[in-house]
Amino acid sequence: MNKKVTAADVAAHVGVSRSAVSRAFTAGASVHPKKRAKILAAAKELSYQPNFFARTLSTPVSRQRSNLVAILISDFSNPYQSYLFEQLSTALQQSGKQPMLLNVKQAEDMDAAILRLSGYQVDGVIAVMGSLPATSFNQCLKLSLPLVTLGRADERGLIPSVQTDNLTAGRLAAQHFVSQGLTELGFVAGRADGQASLERYQGFKEALTEHGIPAPLLLEAGRYTYAAGYALAARELTSLRQLAGVFCASDALAMGLMDCCRGHADLAIPKQLKVIGCDDVPQAAWQGYQLSTVAQPVEQMVAQVLLLLQRMWDGDQRICSMNRLAPSLIIRQT
């Protein structure tokens, strides 16, 4: 019962050679389709899985691939980060890659994460930079590996990035409020140095100005989390009561703000205050929130990240350093 199943066990079960088992698990290897299917079925029955590290070591250096892709991510208290990791890891697995999570909680943890990565033969790295400062880019460059960032762009163009067109996100929120005849508006910001938050505010403000509406009241939450949104609403209730609508830099901020307004201040949403979030995390559609939001095109972003990594692995020179994808407005009940 406790004996580890080996390739030899699978070979004996099917009646083939060990090399045939190895070829069945190797992409592009020569093995008859019916034989491959029979071997894979037997492997599933016996709960056999090849040792990817051992296979890498036995492969000539010129063709070595571990199929490991590291994902550097931080701030799992923001549901968007968890949602993004789920989508990235699923897409990687579907493309035959093995995701490896490194939870970088603070900017100073980046060096430690890079040191840990040096102990693995990873093929590439995806760094989710939205909750990390811009200085983290210099640390990422130490990786000397195929690398793509999400959530924040390297303005120098040294590292290819994929992100939402945040200016458009802000404009979409503003245009919807304007269409509702609202003029007293506010913006709840995330990180003070957060590129996404700054750009969403800029697009929001510019679109309002174009319609002759005063600049929105800027409310600083400091983070993108639910707790930050709740705390901001608790200390800014007087200001919120004077607004007709508020655009939040993330869904988590919007949901925290909504819960505080409803439970702590008896401020009705959307009757007294209309709210728009940004991200479209799964929780935004929950019955208790039904949050109107500007959706990030997560599936397209993930596909673009994998495309860029594949081009780097193939030595393709068609690598765009700045990849911005269009968001969309989702109208629910807030």
Results as ranks from 00 to 15, higher is better:
K3T: 14
V10H: 13
R18F: 00
S19R: 07
V21M: 05
F25K: 10
F25G: 12
A29C: 07
S30T: 03
V31T: 00
K34L: 10
K38E: 15
A41K: 03
K44V: 02
E45P: 01
S47W: 00
P50S: 13
N51W: 01
T59W: 05
V61D: 11
V61C: 02
Q64K: 12
N67R: 11
I71Y: 07
P79N: 03
Q81N: 10
S82F: 04
T90Y: 08
Q93H: 07
M100H: 06
E108Q: 15
M110W: 05
L115T: 12
S118M: 03
Q121A: 12
V125T: 07
V128R: 01
P133K: 09
P133E: 03
A134L: 11
N138Q: 08
K142H: 11
L147S: 04
A153Q: 11
P160L: 08
S161W: 05
G170S: 02
A173F: 08
Q175G: 11
Q175S: 10
H176I: 01
F177K: 12
S179P: 00
Q180E: 11
G181Q: 05
G186Y: 14
G186W: 14
F187I: 09
G190L: 03
S197W: 09
L198P: 02
L198T: 02
R200V: 12
Y201R: 12
G203S: 09
L208E: 10
P214F: 05
P214Y: 10
P216N: 01
L218N: 03
T225A: 04
G229V: 09
G229S: 09
A234M: 07
A252E: 02
A254V: 05
L257P: 07
M258D: 03
H264N: 04
A268S: 15
L273H: 03
G277H: 08
D279H: 13
D280M: 12
V281P: 04
Q283P: 06
Q287G: 04
Q287T: 11
Y289K: 15
Q290H: 09
L291P: 13
L291K: 10
E299I: 05
M301R: 02
V305H: 05
Q310A: 02
R311N: 04
R311W: 03
C320N: 10
M322P: 00
N323I: 09
N323W: 12
R324T: 11
L325M: 03
P327Y: 11
I330K: 15
R332L: 14
